[in-house]
Design a protein around this nucleic acid. Structure first.
Length: 468
DNA sequence: CTATGGCACGGATT
DNA sequence: AATCCGTGCCATAG
């Protein structure tokens, strides 16, 4: 069904043969790049049979490349078919420094800054504005940030620690909060929102009620209880919903997380860490018919190899003593094989996904073609659970710079929901669910009236009589 | 009588 | 086996 004009991928890996092989491949596949990095580093530390050598090779085709470079063959792949996406595993993005072949091609992303880098990143911004004494305070504040960019240690404590007046620490904190990402080092989501609001206020007119809404009604907003919010603010529900929409569209309660596509902030599902995506898709060339370049991020540089010296020493040991070490050797071998397998599966997955969902990638939510993990599994010829693992807990950066969870590719109703939103956005008079259902079926989406209601609820859209 | 939300069922998906 | 999702039926509100 999917036109499969793939770039030839070397058969570096066979199907898992042993159960151990299978088990480990499965575990590795379920890890995202950050977890994988931890895993590999752990293995390197514990297993003397394994070593990381300065032999930079393209993880996809094994050709030799230089550090932090893309593989010419894979990235620009001598692939005559421009409609086919180019897929490759790339190690060019080092976790600390990255070089891009084509800086213009790389979308602005504030996601590339790794978690540990956030303090440094912010400190640089304030460094010029403050005295060296204050810089120490700033550093102290910034080291107390949690993953969300919020401050966990109270300012009072910091003041006491450094024997300086509270107001001074507060001053530094205020300065930091105005840095990018705005609101960083706020003590709570509420404070972060207020700071962001006040910076917007400098440039635009905003509704004074917004401040009050955040101040007193934040938990109502997050629970989407607009009616109650309205009562609290003494306005009607529509107005309350508008306020809430403005807040969720323009403000971010967790400063360290850049805006995540238009992911719905469903109460507590935002557990994703602030980190790089696992896959990056670029669009290159002709604006109207660009070629997709899919980079699967590989967290390490150099090649994982069996340590030859180690191997030699072991082979000379008497067999009864070598037993444990042989096991380590086995394990190292297995790991390397399984990592290859993991890459292979991911490449295949992205090949199918980026071909099938090309329109979605380039043009947005309305063009998502609903698929299931099971179908993809069938196409590649692997078990469903394999795909499930490959998809889970991984994120992808679209050419637009938005980061989405890969599981969004499997959203069964996103395209309908977005067309529905379009209809509602453009309606002259509020349309009832029945009418919306009819309009949708004209566009080829046959869904029940009841389902329209469910989708509305999902998108946080009010029923017709409460809209205007 | 119309519009909509709650509940529950069954089939698909993971 | 557990979960998710679309849908029908029914109660309630306007």
């Amino acid at each position: 069904m999917v036109s499969q004009s793939f770039i030839p991928i070397q058969k570096t890996s066979q199907r898992p043969t042993t159960t151990a092989h299978l088990a480990q491949t499965m575990t590795l596949l379920g890890l995202n790049n950050l977890e994988l990095l931890e895993k590999i580093q752990g293995e390197l530390a514990n297993n003397p049979a394994l070593e990381l050598i300065d032999d930079y090779r393209c993880p996809t085709c094994k050709r030799r490349i230089s550090k932090n470079q893309l593989c010419i063959f894979c990235s620009y792949g001598n692939n005559p078919d421009l409609d086919a996406p180019i897929i490759f595993v790339s190690s060019r993005r080092d976790f600390n420094n990255s070089t891009y072949l084509n800086p213009e091609d790389i979308p602005e992303d504030n996601y590339s800054v790794q978690k540990e880098d956030l303090p440094t990143y912010v400190l640089k911004q304030v460094a010029t504005e403050i005295s060296s004494e204050e810089r120490i305070l700033a550093a102290h504040i910034l080291t107390g940030l949690d993953e969300d960019g919020l401050l966990t240690t109270p300012l009072e404590e910091i003041a006491r620690y450094h024997h300086v007046p509270f107001s001074k620490v507060q001053g530094v904190a205020k300065l930091i909060q105005r840095c990018d990402p705005i609101g960083v080092s706020a003590s709570s989501p509420k404070e972060a929102l207020l700071v962001q609001l006040s910076t917007i206020k400098d440039r635009h007119d905003i509704d004074p009620l917004l401040e009050k809404a955040i101040e007193v009604g934040l938990d109502l907003i997050s629970r989407k209880q607009y009616t109650d919010l309205g009562k609290l603010l003494d306005v009607n529900t529509q107005k309350a919903e508008k306020l809430a929409k403005f807040i969720s569209d323009n403000l971010n309660p967790f400063p360290a997380r850049a805006h995540w596509g238009n992911i719905r902030h469903q109460s507590d599902t935002i557990t994703e860490r602030y980190r790089k995506p696992d896959v990056i898709i670029h669009a290159q060339g002709d604006k109207n018919n660009p070629q997709l370049i899919v980079e699967i991020i590989w967290p390490i540089h150099g090649s994982l190899k069996i340590n030859k010296d180690f191997q030699k020493i072991i082979s000379e040991l008497p067999s009864d003593k070598a037993k444990n070490w042989n096991q380590a050797l086995e394990q190292a071998n297995l790991l390397i094989k399984c990592l290859n397998q993991r890459n292979h599966t991911l490449v295949q997955l992205m090949q199918i996904l980026s071909t099938l969902q090309r329109d979605f990638i380039l043009q947005g939510d309305t063009h998502l073609k609903p698929t299931t993990r099971a179908k993809i599994a069938k196409d590649i010829g692997v078990h469903e659970s394999t795909i499930s693992r490959a998809v889970s807990s991984k994120t992808l950066q679209l050419p637009s710079g938005h980061i989405i969870p890969i599981s969004k590719f499997f959203d069964r109703s996103l395209h309908i929901r977005t067309t529905m939103k379009l209809i509602i956005d453009n309606e002259a008079v509020p349309l009832s669910d029945t009418k919306i259902a009819k309009l949708l079926s004209k566009k080829g989406y046959n869904i029940a009236r009841r389902t329209v209601a469910k989708y509305r609820a999902m998108e946080g859209i009010l029923p017709a009589h409460l809209r205007n």
